[in-house]
Design a protein around this nucleic acid. Structure first.
Lengths: 151, 151
DNA sequence: TTTGTTGCAAAACGTTTGCAGCCTC
DNA sequence: GAGGCTGCAAACGTTTTGCAACAAA
């Protein structure tokens, strides 16, 4: 589905996408992609915006605009965590991983499992061309298990 | 992880949860649960609210409040589809299924795969007690594949 | 030059909250 | 009776939008 990539390779994917869709290749868009590339883990639009204020200044609206494009070309995914803020994650350069979401405290941990990954990635559909996936396991983290048993 | 249930069984799960948490067993809460039980597929808070206006009238705030409780006791899950609105789905009475999300048009389809289900469900964690899961495969649906090839 | 994109601020949207009255317990 | 829960409307925070200026093609 995907593998470790350099920024150049990622930028090319984005460039091709922009060309194909006849969207403009603005410096803001590449600056945002670079910032995402340099980051680890999950992030939201506003924190990305804040991080960028020192380097290449863009407006929050442009961040949202660009997220839409990156989402559309599959370079990032949107996660359902947290309350009101959308959490994003890049789909490149990470180890493929799955999420453990605690239904009590909302904490999110990651884990990898080759067997699960293989089974999911080897699934072929006749009428759907899959590029990537997200798996969330819901339950109780260690802390919340302990808290419940105390009572 | 779960199996086909009658409304009585589901109601009992909710009742036990409310007792355990020392929350009150109000008619509104059970009316909302009943409405969810009777529905198929995904739904959001506002459409549930609208559906109920004919039967047992509740406020939108109470719907949101109750969703929180149902989420907490695992009777429903929250999905990351769509733009701004949270989509929910009951975790009981459905066939266990996975989701195919088109990254172009946003359509969501379901599929079942026993092998995938088994591999995920048989995963045991030393410090996480999982109760259910969600799997999303992102890619292009048949329609959008065709549209792209035309160009 | 054309027209898509940007920044800004205002608007829109889903969701949460404050409060008075109600109804479980 | 006490206090959690409800409905209502106002408030909140995130995301989107309208518009004039800008810049990629």
């Amino acid at each position: 589905m995907k593998e470790e990539l350099t920024f150049e390779a990622v930028r090319d994917v984005f460039t091709n996408y922009l060309n194909q869709k006849k969207h403009r290749k603005t410096p803001e868009r590449f600056a945002i992609l670079k910032q995402i590339f340099d980051n680890e883990g999950h992030f939201d639009a506003e924190s990305l915006y804040n991080q960028m204020q020192n380097d290449y200044r863009v407006s929050l609206a442009t961040v949202y605009n660009t997220m839409e494009l990156l989402l559309d070309c599959g370079l990032i995914v949107k996660h359902p965590f947290a309350g009101q803020t959308s959490q994003f994650e890049k789909t490149f350069g990470n180890n493929i991983h799955h999420h453990l979401v605690c239904t009590k405290c909302g904490s999110v941990k990651e884990f990898s499992d080759k067997k699960i990954r293989t089974v999911i990635q080897s699934k072929i559909f006749s009428s759907f061309e899959s590029s990537h996936y997200s798996l969330y396991l819901y339950g109780l983290c260690k802390k919340c298990q302990a808290l419940l048993k105390q009572k």
